[in-house]
Write a protein that binds this DNA or RNA. Structure first.
Lengths: 117, 117
DNA sequence: ACACATAACTCGGAATCCGATATATCGGAC
DNA sequence: GTCCGATATATCGGATTCCGAGTTATGTGT
């Protein structure tokens, strides 16, 4: 029933950032690009090519769905996207994996534990 | 003088895992593959194609260097690799970036803090 | 009216991925 | 001592992904 989440892991940087950008709220494409730039303090920028390539694949996989036009939306060009429940689980799984990676790396990069001064 | 580390970020999953596998100790290619499989509990496996593609690029960039043959080494086929100081800094930078990503994601994925029951 | 930001999208060369395959050695079982 | 699976490095090439440049068009502020 549940698709195997592990088949999607590890997430490429592009997919990770797209899912993350959508995790807080629904966004349209342009806003996703801005959010990613914001989160990385401008160091990582997703071009439209990468964004729409990946967005299309995420739609196919059922990880993201497009929302119908918003009633009160002022700019009719915007197309909003939302994570599916599967994507939320996937993101949560990946975040945990990354966290354990971070902890493992910390242990190795800090090979000289100093005791309390 | 210092090469701009940001130009290498974000690291692809393959590069991240290779650097991580080498962060604790020098390893030869086959051992890198095993270490990566071990760390992910067998869920993520790097094939030889991906490994050697990336290893070659890392050597070119001066992030990894090959060690001379070990005196006491039993298996003469093994070629050992070591991270350069630049790579250690790069890995540390990426780990911090991932950590802040993890923290941001946690805040978003846990938007309904339930009080103690 | 003008300029710039917003917004979605296309295109195609470049880069990367990555399993299949090749070649050879090691180590243990028998 | 021979057999065999694991170890070890490496190449090849099709498939996939990346990703900026460019396109078209609308919103917004002056």
């Amino acid at each position: 029933m549940e698709p195997d989440l592990n088949q999607y892991l590890p997430l490429s940087p592009a997919v990770l950032h797209i899912l993350l950008a959508l995790s807080g709220e629904d966004r349209h494409g342009y806003a996703i690009m801005q959010e990613i730039a914001r989160q990385s303090a401008g160091r990582y920028k997703l071009g439209p090519g990468t964004l729409y390539d990946n967005l299309e694949k995420l739609l196919e996989k059922g990880l993201v769905r497009e929302l119908p036009r918003r009633p009160g939306e002022e700019d009719p060009r915007r197309r909003y996207y939302r994570l599916t429940d599967t994507a939320k689980k996937l993101l949560a799984t990946e975040i945990e994996r990354l966290d354990s990676l971070v902890r493992e790396a910390r242990g190795r990069l800090r090979p000289h534990p100093r005791r309390a001064t």
